[in-house]
């Protein structure tokens, strides 16, 4: 027992104050919300469009990036001769709508919280069931991290539960493979209403790297209604936490 206590003292207190206090510092090379400067684009140049592995970029007059497809890789930046695309360190990426993920370099609207009545029900206690439906287990790993002492999801009254019967909503990851489609439908049906669905990661939003494969369904919103989209490949744990707290109205607007 003494050994445990000694070790506990050495390991220290590790929970981050987020969302209170200063914004957590992410590494300099971290790739968060991209910014676009279409004015730098030479006429007819589409090098970024050609380079993007998931066809997330379109140029129709102005350049647009679909964050739902974006893998946050460097391929577009590397291809661009003018530096028109850059990543910022802003990890706040969750939106309430699929269209909201399509950015054009102007204002980016972060997710809205649920209505006042739902907030009274779920604001201080939200039980979520996770369904992993394809993908690479990266998003699952970074959801799991929220349970560690660093993020301590439990302090917000949010837990991942072991049955859909105990859940207020689903966190879905993966493009929804054909082999997982039925299991997702059944899990959704088994969750009592009112309920939410949060789609985490490029796969669950659009199919991600597996877009248009016959073996999957290009994400979960063709199968279950989605209330929140959290993009990334995988999203940083802070991005996911920020999203869930916004859903509950515990972070609002551009507040940090």
């Amino acid at each position: 027992m003494l050994k445990v206590i000694t070790e506990r003292i050495k390991q220290g207190y590790r929970t981050i104050p987020f969302p209170a206090g200063e914004m957590p510092q992410l590494p300099e090379r971290y790739r968060g919300l991209p910014v676009i400067d279409s004015s730098k684009c030479p006429d007819g140049c589409a090098k970024c469009v050609e380079a993007c592995p998931t066809d997330a970029i379109t140029i129709d007059g102005d350049m647009k990036i679909d964050l739902g497809r974006c893998l946050f890789c460097t391929d577009c930046m590397d291809a661009c001769p003018e530096g028109a695309i850059e990543y910022t360190p802003d990890f706040r990426l969750a939106t309430s709508t699929r269209e909201g993920l399509i950015i054009d370099g102007k204002a980016f609207e972060l997710a809205q919280s649920i209505d006042e009545k739902s907030r009274r029900i779920f604001g201080r206690s939200l039980q979520l069931r996770q369904v992993s439906a394809g993908g690479c287990n990266g998003c699952e790993a970074d959801i799991n991290v929220l349970g560690t002492v660093v993020f301590d999801l439990g302090r917000f009254g949010i837990h991942i539960v072991a049955s859909p019967r105990h859940a207020d909503g689903l966190i879905v990851t993966g493009p929804v493979t054909q082999n997982m489609k039925l299991a997702l439908e059944k899990t959704y049906a088994a969750t009592p209403a009112p309920k939410f669905v949060i789609a985490v990661g490029a796969c669950a939003i659009s199919g991600g790297p597996f877009i248009d494969h016959d073996e999957q369904n290009n994400g979960c919103d063709s199968i279950v209604p989605v209330d929140m989209y959290i993009p990334g490949c995988p999203p940083h744990p802070l991005t996911i936490l920020d999203g869930i707290l916004r859903l509950l109205g515990r972070i609002e607007g551009n507040e940090r």
């Binding site: 993007c52 394809g134 993966g174 597996f210 494969h213």
Partner: peptide, 18 residues
């Protein structure tokens, strides 16, 4: 098999941008 997303088949004809 639940995670099967058909990667090997898509690698044929590559390497490409994906």
């Amino acid at each position: 098999g639940y995670q099967h997303r058909g990667i090997e088949r898509r690698l044929i004809g590559g390497p490409d941008k994906r």
